[in-house]
């Protein structure tokens, strides 16, 4: 393009061509996506970049502080709180994924049979998933709150001594994981049931013609057919568990003595409890980095399919 001063008429032709681009079908995909792109830039991209910057500062919620380089990250790597949160996030994710996969697959296999009123069970077993987190936690807390609570009454019937589920560190961790499994198995069950129903019947017919037992049919037909979707589901569930705030916060607020504090809770406590935006942002950024690794693996998997 030659460089020359733009005459007045040129701007109108630029405008005219912009108008024409807007009128023609070519601009339509962009226009359709414009509102959501704008929102994603404002609510995800902008905070992500500012958050990244905050991670290198000593800010409070009231004013941004000065730039301190990697100080926050170095402090985190040396802090027992952070290492514990990292460890708990890992434990929480691993046990939840295993637990809700096993439970979900078991129930999906049961419901894939010809059972009377199957539709009813399918709906009734989804309830733990759709009930608001606060509602389920209120009810679980009531069952395990103190030595007079339901679980301890039942333990008492069998002559056991009461268990302090929410004030003993190990039991609190177990309780958070158990409730998370309870809240997330329906998603696994639903997705695996859909996958089971998608398996080609003729594979089973061929297997039973070859004399394969029920177990061998499951082992050599069902499981391999489910392997792809299972990996995707487990990765998704890992990501969601790492991101979970509601279950540990509402049940124990991260206690006792921070035993059930995962990375998200730690970031929340640093930012909104201790008013240390720098440290909070650094923790959330590390969380993002961990999740991004999982997301990349997941995207790769899905492209292979």
């Amino acid at each position: 393009m030659s460089v020359r001063p733009l005459p007045a008429g040129e701007t109108t032709t630029w405008r005219a061509s912009a108008r024409e681009w807007l009128r023609s079908g070519n601009s339509l995909p962009f226009c359709l996506l414009a509102p959501s792109i704008f929102l994603m830039l404002a609510v995800i991209a902008y905070p992500m970049l500012t958050g990244f910057y905050y991670g290198f500062t000593t800010g409070s919620l009231l004013k941004t502080g000065k730039f301190v380089g990697f100080d926050n990250y170095i402090r985190l790597l040396q802090s027992a709180d952070f290492l514990h949160a990292l460890w708990f996030s890992l434990i929480f994710a691993v046990f939840n994924v295993i637990g809700c996969y096993v439970l979900g697959l078991g129930l999906a296999l049961l419901m894939n049979q010809d059972v009377p009123f199957r539709g009813f069970f399918r709906v009734a077993l989804l309830l733990p998933w759709i009930v608001p987190s606060i509602v389920s936690i209120v009810s679980w807390r009531w069952m395990m709150a103190d030595q007079h609570a339901l679980f301890n009454q039942i333990i008492g019937l069998f002559g056991g001594s009461p268990i302090y589920f929410l004030s003993d560190e190990h039991w609190a961790i177990a309780a958070v994981i158990a409730i998370k499994i309870w809240r997330s198995f329906p998603f696994m069950m639903l997705s695996l049931l859909a996958a089971l129903q998608g398996i080609d019947r003729s594979l089973y017919e061929a297997a039973s013609l070859d004399g394969a037992s029920r177990w061998n049919q499951f082992r050599y037909v069902t499981l391999p057919q489910l392997s792809n979707i299972s990996i995707v589901l487990c990765l998704l569930m890992t990501i969601w568990t790492v991101n979970d705030f509601d279950t540990p916060w509402l049940l124990t607020q991260g206690g006792p003595a921070n035993a059930t504090e995962n990375l998200v809770l730690l970031a929340y406590r640093y930012t909104f409890g201790r008013n240390d935006v720098g440290l909070g942002s650094a923790v959330s950024f590390i969380t993002l980095a961990i999740l991004m690794v999982l997301v990349v693996i997941l995207l790769r998997r899905q492209r292979e399919r």
Partner: peptide, 25 residues
């Protein structure tokens, strides 16, 4: 544009929302 956008959607779904909440607060 479409491919890029659906990637971005995927990332949004996995995004640790706490990271956005701090600057947005």
């Amino acid at each position: 544009l479409i491919t890029g956008y659906s990637r971005a959607l995927f990332v949004v779904q996995m995004f640790p929302i706490i990271l956005a909440l701090i600057p947005l607060f």
